[in-house]
Amino acid sequence: MLLNSVIIVLREVLEAALIFSILLALSKQSRIHRTWIIWSLLIGLFGAVIYGINIPLVSEWFDGVGQEVVNALMQYAVYIMLLLYIIILLLYASEPAPETRKLLVIMMVLITSIAMICEGAEILLYFFSVTRSAHHYAAVMMGMIIGASIGISIGFLFYYLLMNICEKWSMIFGLGLLILVSSGMISQATLLMIQADWLPAQMPLWNTSDFLSEKSVLGQLLYALVGYEATPTALQASMYLGGLILPVFIIVLLKLKFKG
């Protein structure tokens, strides 16, 4: 039970922690004060509780695949907002006006809190299901503490890593990671849509689980960071690539426009 609760919590916390640390590092560069975290934590936790309570209802939607569809839509929404965030950041990176700064803060709060809603709801569901039987209580609690601590620690280390590389590189590095994380979300959302049969199912393209299992901590880290998938389908892989190329394309276009 311990290992399982570690993995469940770690998977969810890690993704949120990575997004938080990247956005925090980037917001420090656009000189945005970090008080926005409090807002996203509040909205995220509140939303997670509301969503967690309503999952029984939501899962009945769309012939019993409501949860997949809602989660996938949330992840697509996060991707689009991350895309907008990147564009705004690049357009006004040099001297963000107060209005732009406000817009960036709203974007960041939305992105992080929606990510938290998806992931927090699952942790809550798990916690309340498993702790109903008393003899798993200690193991689950310990597992959750360990998983959350590992996730948050990685987030902190990541933040300081981003903060301590030089400013020019940390911008590029941070944006690159953000694009990877958001493409990973596209891939996950696509998987959920396939699972719900809203998108066509296919044979997996390859299987790398012998090489690197999604169950391992490294697998989980790569899953959260670059959307690692051991057995992706063609549709998933192409959505991932599309999600990767689109922002890069936009960035190159913006850079060219600025130069020309």
């Binding site: 601590s149 620690s153 902190f156 280390l157 300081y160």
Partner: peptide, 9 residues
């Protein structure tokens, strides 16, 4: 933060 995070990890 860094030391504690590393140790935790």
């Amino acid at each position: 933060t860094v030391i504690l995070s590393t140790i935790t990890l």
